[in-house]
Amino acid sequence: MSLIDLTSMAEPDEEEQEKIEETLEGLKEDIPDLCYQCGKCTSGCEAFILLELEPHSIMGKSKAGFIDELVNSDEIWTCMQCFKCQERCPQDLSPVRVIFALKNLAVAAGKEIPSGYQKMLQSVLGNGLIQQPKEVLNRANETRKREDLDLPPVPEPEDMDKVQQILMKATQEKLR
């Protein structure tokens, strides 16, 4: 490619771009190349006003190959995953899936990812769920546990160690 971003002197990275396309193809989704930048996604983006997520510009940058900038950005971690952008896209494209693919790339490249996601991942690896059963409060500010409410124990794999091992290996895999 012959583009250079003069603000950062970055050049498009076709290899990284192909990785996104590979992932999307694994999901049978269209690659961002067909986006004509109408901005309908950003007009309705749930995360734009509060967190300044611009799906159309993510599509644009992915299309042009400025992947590194995206992978290192905080922007991709602000998506609320409401799928409105995909639903409304007149070109049948899916910005939200491009964003997922970018986040996967960031993780694979060992970038620092937000602590919330980090915690969630560790918890799933540790005991299979994103969080442990909590003691909750009722309206009278009394604590309640599952047992108190006659609920059966939370499901858990019998051999959690084994599941853990499989999961550890799975996180190194790619869709294609």
């Binding site: 992932t23 694994g26 999901l27 971690w77 995953q81 997922f100 693919a101 986040k103 996967n104 993780v107 694979a108 990812i113 996601y117 969630m120 991942l121 799933v124 299979g128 769920l129 994103i130 499901p155 858990e156 794999p157 019998e158 599941v163 499989i166 999961l167 799975a170 996180t171 895999e173 790619k174 869709l175």
Partner: peptide, 21 residues
Amino acid sequence: EESTCCGAPLRNVNMFTTMYL
């Protein structure tokens, strides 16, 4: 009894793990 997280929250981290779970 043996179930775990469905994997959807991990879409952000690794799509394969999501599918696996």
